[in-house]
Design a protein around this nucleic acid. Structure first.
Lengths: 132, 132
DNA sequence: CTGGATCCGAAATGATACTG
DNA sequence: CAGTATCATTTCGGATCCAG
């Protein structure tokens, strides 16, 4: 291992170990932000696998499973199994997961405010009919 | 090619009102956040392609080009060409791009604060043994 | 110097079937 | 119901070559 971390590399977005880069790698995956959002809106209430899937249209069983396992491993989501037949598995955000909601909400807010501008920029670039 | 625009038949067709997903698609790509950060730290100063590349260790010429083109098309980055020989191309954040810095900084702050907890959760889960 | 075009391998995603 | 395994497809990222 390098000693770069010990050098106080916190802001170094360029290091593969940079926390921001790694965080973006995680929440940048297709379904993660949606899962966090759905679980976040549920507050401290738990949601079952099937319900979660129903609330995230388009997600496959596999990808939801993969996403949840990743989030659980990261300590952002808590998983509780009811050993019944058939089994029921409940998910909820941990405190750590809930703490992510604030910056994620800021990003969401920015997105909702500015995606229209981005779309406009895209359509403008396509037609290239900017002001003469 | 319109790789991002021409795909809307499956992924986000059901979710046209969630721009967050699309934003994360963009800033989640490997080099975007780095480019935004470098350009952001430069303030309103422009940075040339080669300088940008030098400040982002590991980025290939192609990916920097692709990333910049994407950001430019999105209206987050402004591109100015000096028609000299050899040509010089300068980049800087637009106002829209700079506005993204705030939520991005919030995310960065969260990452720097909490990635250690995520790493801890991971190592705990891996051994499933827990520290005695 | 800039950056587009193309080929290739790796990783993410998705569809389907199967297990406990 | 929840989750895994397998296979096919798509996308991403990197290397290289080529053009203005």
């Amino acid at each position: 291992m390098t000693s770069r971390q010990a050098r106080g590399l916190r802001g170094d977005l360029f290091d593969p170990q940079c926390p921001t880069r790694r965080l973006l790698d995680r929440i940048g995956t297709k379904w993660t932000s949606m899962v966090v959002k759905v679980l976040g809106e549920a507050g401290s209430e738990e949601i079952r696998f099937a319900d979660l899937r129903r609330q995230i249209p388009g997600v496959s069983q596999k990808m939801l499973s993969v996403t949840l396992r990743s989030l659980t491993r990261d300590g952002l989501v808590a998983r509780r199994v009811e050993p019944t037949v058939p089994p029921k598995v409940h998910y909820r955000l941990t405190d750590l997961g809930r703490s992510l909601e604030t910056p994620l909400a800021a990003l969401r807010d920015w997105a909702e405010t500015n995606m229209a501008a981005i779309d406009l920029a895209n359509s403008t670039a396509e037609t290239d009919d900017g002001p003469a």
